[in-house]
């Protein structure tokens, strides 16, 4: 469902972040993207939700050819992809419920449908009882769960996470991973860039290692492979 062919990305400042990548990812897979700092993991991830556009090469997501995707259509693509970040990216002036509902409001759904979906995902991430609280009033782990709820509320086929546990203590990180597993079992493809050796080595999934903008390793159930 996601495929990259000879993808190459050079930033305007001349840095070549991705130097010819070929990848096929199937529906329902769980993928760790690992590699040293500056290897190009975030750039790779950004290209999947078309935050960055490849300098050359082809990218297909859900059968959509990015090269042919007009910028006007990008919002509709984004609705098919959930994104989670290290820094949560919640809106501080909106409460938990509103932060999640936000992702559905932009799709102009009816308030009834929005309410139903939001309560469902808040239940899934275990935050139904904190729906009226504001981001500053809940813990980092809870904030990340809110952002995960937001990313899946529009039931995307794929979820992308760039170091989702990067800002969390180990125990909370495991909570988040359990949640990811739950989401993955529902059939959602997950692509997660991470530096967390323990997680990668414990919950085994396909590992794609990137170094210097190239895929240097791609194995099912692989290890993290770097010193943490």
């Amino acid at each position: 469902m996601i495929s990259m062919k000879n993808v190459y990305k050079k930033y305007p400042n001349g840095i070549v972040a991705i130097n010819g990548i070929n990848i096929e990812i199937n529906q329902g897979e769980f993928i760790y993207v690992v590699g040293p700092s500056g290897a190009g993991k975030s750039t790779f991830i950004k290209m999947v939700y078309r935050e960055e556009f490849p300098t050359s090469g082809d990218i297909f997501v859900n059968g959509i050819n990015f090269a042919k995707l007009k910028s006007k259509q990008v919002p509709y693509l984004r609705r098919q992809i959930g994104v989670v970040f290290q820094d949560f990216k919640l809106l501080p002036l909106l409460n938990v419920y509103e932060n999640v509902a936000f992702a559905l409001e932009v799709t102009e759904q009816s308030p009834k449908v929005i309410r139903k979906h939001v309560m469902e995902v808040l239940d899934l991430v275990g935050l139904k009882h904190k729906a009226r609280m504001f981001p500053t009033e809940i813990s980092g782990g809870e904030q990340q769960r809110v952002s995960i709820a937001r990313s899946i509320v529009s039931t995307p086929k794929v979820m992308i996470a760039d170091e989702p546990t990067g800002n969390l203590d180990p125990e909370t990180a495991w909570d988040i991973m359990n949640l990811f597993e739950k989401i993955n079992r529902r059939g959602t493809t997950i692509i997660m860039a991470t530096h967390n050796k323990e997680i990668v080595n414990t919950i085994k999934h396909r590992v794609i290692a990137i170094e210097g903008g190239l895929v240097v390793r791609d194995e099912l159930g692989g290890d993290y492979g770097y010193e943490a």
Binding site: Y49, K72, P75, Y76, L77, R78, R79, V83, K89, L91, F102, A103, V106, T107, R150, S154
Partner: peptide
């Protein structure tokens, strides 16, 4: 900026 960034992330159209 953050608000706009997040709106784009969740698929808001430019007009929205």
């Amino acid at each position: 900026k953050r608000e706009v960034e997040i709106m784009k992330l969740v698929g808001a159209t430019n007009w929205f």
